[in-house]
């Protein structure tokens, strides 16, 4: 019976067929397309790495890896003897990054704790998009603020001719790292099980003690991952440091020195260098070093994040 009920439509609704080949091929090829799309992402990451390595090889034919990694002297345009040590820019990068973290981390954790644990849902609804707005401000605008607003203050406070130095870069990078650290820390705090909080409150702890002694420690690995990702951002940021740190090509000795980070070195010099010269390829080598550093930082963050106890 069953299919016999609608004889007129039987030819229109084929109810019983073996797997039709064309349909199978179509579905499989669509699946294949999406699979390739997924594969592409891996290929891009590998491609970036491979191309940077490939472009760095000519540089390392001229420069010894030892010099590249351990010399403080970056002077590719010297008439006497060009030198290609990235150590001073590496130190510069680390300096502004650490400076940024010194003030971004406490403020971020505080803000995240406020948003997730104290704020009313109304305040939270508003605070979250506001933090997102901060993330959306283009780095070049932050850099511009560094020149026009932060710089003069620094110059006045430290009695310097201008305020374009590592402190300025640190402040700006800190501002840029805020949204990343805040939102990820907030997620981490949200992931702390209610039972922990309730247990602590039931023991007579105040809300504040619960936040400080229970919730933040319980979210620690998530927060560390957040800080590392914020650090990764700061290390790789280009335009702000390019504009606000003065970019003097020398080994910095204090935070009031002008610094040239790895990113700003690439940004400044790639535009001026002769195509195909050792200097040109050396800049790709700097890019490779930068890629590897941020990759390591991000991967570590990833591992810390995934190894956190599943609550």
């Amino acid at each position: 019976m069953g299919s016999g009920n609608c004889n007129d439509s039987e030819n229109k609704l084929s109810t019983r067929n073996k797997l039709s080949l064309s349909k199978k091929v179509k579905e499989a090829s669509i699946h294949g397309c999406f699979l390739f799309n997924g594969l592409l992402v891996i290929l891009i990451l590998i491609g970036i790495f491979a191309l940077l390595v490939w472009a760095s090889i000519p540089a390392f034919k001229e420069i010894s890896i030892k010099e590249f990694l351990f010399s403080f002297n970056w002077n590719p345009t010297s008439y006497v003897k060009p030198s290609y040590g990235i150590l001073s820019m590496l130190v510069s990068t680390l300096m502004v990054t650490i400076g940024a973290m010194i003030f971004a981390v406490p403020i971020s954790i505080g803000t995240a704790a406020f948003i997730s644990d104290i704020a009313s849902s109304r305040v939270r609804e508003i605070a979250k998009p506001v933090v997102e707005i901060l993330a959306s401000i283009p780095s070049v605008v932050i850099g511009f603020i560094g020149i026009t607003l932060v710089g003069p203050y620094i110059a006045k406070i430290f009695n310097l001719p201008d305020g374009l130095n590592a402190i300025n870069g640190s402040i700006l990078l800190g501002v840029m790292a805020l949204p990343t650290i805040i939102s990820l820390t907030e997620d981490a705090l949200k992931g702390v099980p209610k039972s922990y909080t309730e247990a602590s409150l039931a023991l007579g702890a105040t809300k504040w003690q619960t936040i400080i002694r229970v919730r933040i420690p319980a979210a620690a690995s998530g927060i560390i991952a957040a800080v590392m990702l914020g650090m990764g951002r700061a290390i790789g940021e280009t335009m702000t440091v390019l504009m606000a740190t003065g970019c003097a090509n020398a080994m910095p000795t204090s935070f009031t020195d002008s610094v040239r980070t790895m990113t700003s070195a690439i940004a400044i010099e790639l535009g001026e260098v002769a195509y195909g010269s050792t200097h040109y390829y050396a800049l790709f080598a700097v890019g490779l070093a930068l890629f590897l550093i941020t990759f390591a930082v991000n991967l570590t963050a990833d591992i810390i994040f995934n190894r956190r106890p599943k609550l």
Binding site: S14, T15, R16, K18, L19
Partner: peptide, 19 residues
């Protein structure tokens, strides 16, 4: 189902679900 083993790998899942 109706004399056909639907667990066979060649079965058209889509046609089956219509039936």
């Amino acid at each position: 189902i109706d004399g056909e083993d639907i667990l066979h790998k060649d079965i058209d899942v889509v046609a089956l679900r219509r039936r």
